[in-house]
């Protein structure tokens, strides 16, 4: 069953930044890139659970604040030789309002 939740507006997230959506199943990091694309990932790095929402966003990637793994915002996959993946969530943006589909937690 799909469970689309409205979480806020694009304007509420800084460009090249992230805000956190707290859910009963754990935090979800919502990212906004330079081209205003919005992505949602589980807020836990595949390496040692670092909070990805606190990282530096560049291109469609975020660099984890704890040990610098680079994670793709599109897939949640670690880039380069590092291996691992964090769950990602489908996102829709209408009129600047962001919706996240919460069931697909992986």
């Amino acid at each position: 069953m799909s469970n689309w939740v409205e979480v806020g507006t694009v304007e509420e997230i800084p460009k090249l930044g992230s805000r956190v959506l707290q859910t009963p199943d754990g935090d979800v990091a919502i990212f906004r890139t330079a081209d205003d694309a919005i992505f949602a990932l589980r807020d836990k790095c595949p390496h040692k659970d670092g909070p990805l929402s606190q990282g530096i966003v560049h291109g469609h990637n975020v660099t984890c604040p704890l040990h610098n793994w680079k994670i793709s915002l599109e897939s949640g996959e670690a880039q380069g030789p590092d291996e691992g993946c964090t769950g990602s969530y489908a996102v829709k943006v209408n009129d600047g309002r962001i919706q996240v589909e919460l069931k697909s937690q992986s």
Binding site: G8, E12, Q22
Partner: peptide, 11 residues
């Protein structure tokens, strides 16, 4: 101001 508050809390 936004830095220290979650975007939204779902309970």
């Amino acid at each position: 101001a936004d830095e220290f508050t979650p975007l939204k809390v779902i309970s």
